[in-house]
Design a protein around this nucleic acid. Structure first.
Lengths: 238, 238
DNA sequence: CCGCGCGTTTGACCTAGATCAAGGCACGGC
DNA sequence: GCCGTGCCTTGATCTAGGTCAAACGCGCGG
């Protein structure tokens, strides 16, 4: 598998230049970031950092998808977030990571060495401002997901999840109707607080009802966007 | 009911001076905040801001406890966080609030007018830096709660909740063993993604097993801290 | 002092989703 | 082209927690 991004490129050509923590930076500030960065790639399925590991670098996801998760002692797993291009890993001021990070697809990271990056956070307001914005956005998303985990039914959870996939894979101007699930049934279950059997049954039911169609296990088509939205428990929302 | 904080006081005497968004500010910066602040109080049980309301001010909780929650169309409620003294309300750059905020106990807020505050966030790095830290802390707490909502049993949820109360009401140097529940059974249920009956039954069971004792409905004593921790599903954690 | 109301407790019963258990299907390696 | 190994689907059964319902008890106003 090849990566969509040529890691020889400069920041100015970076696909996440205007969305990541560097979004507000000017050319000078970008140069300071560029001086402490390097790229790293992780094949699908491999661990990126483990909970409790010493944090030696902060990273932005450049391409691919990673999962943030927590595993309980007896093996129960909860995925607490998906990291998409431009999302950030690490908490300045902390020594260790609090959740496990795993590559779901092949992942390319843009990594910043820890100490110099922490100095930049102190020095360059454009970075702390952007990181504040991004953290507040993620906080909102996390709270939204808490509503899903605490109060939605299995059907509503899955409908919400499918809508999320659709929204996130939307490329402005390209009204696609075929999407692909980046996760296995088990990973979806761990994200939604369900079991893989429940995911499978609900997807089959939605297929039977004509709401969605599948081409293979991963590729799906939304036949009735409105019905999907009604099934999500968020009727009358964005 | 009287408030524990005299709102005539200056910032320098503020109980949350060193924990709120102003924590890193020096005297000059504090003066700029002081110029745009005012206090507001809300009696227990009243709404503070409603989802979708125009955001005219940002606030820090000075005293009391508020709840952040979302209500679904059919009335299901999920509490997504408790706001304690020093916690912040509002998202610079957004026009509206995304969740309902309700006073659980009597609450005093320190409010900043919107526009001038947004200007300060741009101008004063100490503010955006502190807000970034606080947002990242809350993000961690939210993700921790996602694990609870998605994967813990009713018993584990309640044990975790009680431990949280104990941890949060701990005053360094005062090894208290009597605590008080700030929430009704229904509010606890909405926080834990359960029903009030399940809360009541589990608390009764824990009482029967000698884990905790109650004095009235709101006051409780932890008889076996270790057993409570074991019941939380977080064995072998902080 | 009485009665009213809200928060709570407790009981009986029900159901969504978990658990346990077979198979089935697709894709990679040989 | 065949086989093995992960996924995934489907079925049968179980159960934690939800729902519905009744009664309790404490505090409060009259």
């Amino acid at each position: 598998m090849t990566f969509a991004f040529d890691t020889q490129e400069r920041c100015s050509a970076c696909p996440i230049r205007h969305r990541a923590i560097c979004a507000r930076c000017d050319t000078d500030e970008l140069a300071r970031l560029e001086a402490i960065k390097s790229y790293a790639t992780f094949p699908a399925g491999t661990p990126i950092i483990w909970r409790g590991d010493a944090l030696t670098a902060f990273s932005s996801v450049v391409t691919g998808i990673a999962a943030l998760s927590r595993t309980m002692e007896d093996g129960r797993v909860q995925v607490v977030g998906l990291l998409l291009p431009s999302d950030f890993i690490g908490r300045p001021g902390r020594n260790a990571v609090d959740f496990d990070v795993t590559a779901v697809t092949d992942v390319t990271l843009c990594q910043f060495r820890r100490k110099p990056f922490e100095r930049l956070v102190e020095d360059v307001p454009h970075i702390s401002q952007r990181m504040m914005e991004m953290a507040l956005d993620e906080l909102n998303a996390a709270r939204e997901w808490m509503v899903l985990l605490g109060r939605k039914t299995a059907r509503e959870k899955i409908a919400t999840f499918l809508e999320m996939i659709v929204r996130r894979s939307a490329v402005p101007g390209q009204p696609a109707d075929t999407f692909t699930l980046p996760l296995t049934r088990e990973e979806i279950a761990n994200f939604l607080g369900l079991t893989l059997e429940t995911i499978s049954r609900q997807l089959s039911a939605m297929k039977r009802e004509g709401l969605v169609s599948f081409e293979g296990r991963r590729t799906f088509i939304i036949n009735d966007v409105a019905a999907l939205h009604r099934a999500s428990g968020d009727a009358g929302e964005p």
